[in-house]
Simulated assay, not measured.
Amino acid sequence: MVASTSGYDDGYIRRGTVVSSVTELEGLLAQWVGDSERQTIGDVGSFGGKPWLKIEYQGGQCFHLNADTKRAAVLSFLKAAAEAGGADSLAWRVVANRGRTQQVNKVVYGDQEDRLKGWYGYTPTALSAPGPLL
């Protein structure tokens, strides 16, 4: 069950939606894929790199997905989650962002070391070193 502000705005996940686990994230994204034809989870407008969907986990910690997270990346996530037996069975990690700053704030899943194209998940603050998220 989505924790707050669930639903859609013009086929996008409503900005500010909060889920309380990666399992709820999996359910919300699966529902969105079935209900919407949009190519990103949020309205990108002139800048897509804005927090859109908040995922809470373990004692108030959180990360977010940006508005420009791509449908193809969501489909890849859902496939990986299904193959693992659920999103909570995936290896969630925080790695260095490939951007200018190289901040350790990019959230990835699975056991492959390569980045996930179109998956824009980030912690609200940078960590001191890469490592497990969950």
Rank of each mutant, 00 (worst) to 15 (best):
A80S: 15
S36P: 07
W92C: 00
Q112R: 10
D43F: 13
L78D: 04
V44D: 02
V22H: 00
G131S: 14
K79C: 00
I55Y: 04
R14W: 09
G86V: 14
V22P: 03
S76L: 13
W92I: 12
D111W: 01
P132D: 15
V19Q: 09
G42D: 06
G60W: 07
Q112C: 12
G48H: 01
P124L: 10
E113S: 12
V44K: 14
G27N: 14
V18D: 02
T40R: 05
A126L: 07
T40H: 14
T69M: 12
G131T: 08
Q102A: 14
Y109R: 05
E24T: 04
L127N: 06
A82Y: 02
L133K: 02
V22Q: 00
V107R: 10
Y57K: 10
G110P: 12
D88P: 07
A72N: 08
A84L: 03
L28M: 03
N105R: 15
S4R: 11
Q112N: 10
T123W: 02
F47W: 15
D114L: 09
V107H: 02
E83F: 07
A84D: 02
Q61C: 07
A82R: 13
S20M: 11
M1R: 03
L53A: 04
R71G: 07
G45Q: 11
E24S: 05
T69Y: 01
G110L: 09
S20T: 03
G7I: 07
F77Y: 04
L127T: 03
Q39V: 15
E24K: 01
L134G: 10
Y109I: 06
A126C: 08
D35E: 15
E83H: 11
A82N: 13
P124Q: 03
V33M: 04
G110C: 08
R71K: 10
G49Y: 11
G48D: 08
P130N: 01
V33S: 11
E83M: 06
S46I: 06
D114H: 13
E37N: 13
Y120E: 13
Y8H: 04
L90C: 07
A96G: 04
E26R: 10
F63A: 08
V94Q: 08
S89R: 15
D111K: 11
D10L: 11
G99Y: 02
C62V: 06
V74G: 12
A84C: 03
D43Y: 12
Q103K: 09
R98V: 08
A73H: 03
G11Q: 12
E37F: 00
R71W: 03
L75I: 13
D9Y: 09
D10S: 14
G86Q: 09
V108D: 06
V44W: 04
T5K: 14
V44T: 14
P132G: 15
Q31C: 01
M1H: 04
L134T: 14
L25D: 07
E83A: 14
T125D: 09
G85H: 09
Q31V: 01
G42R: 05
L127K: 13
S21I: 00
R115P: 00
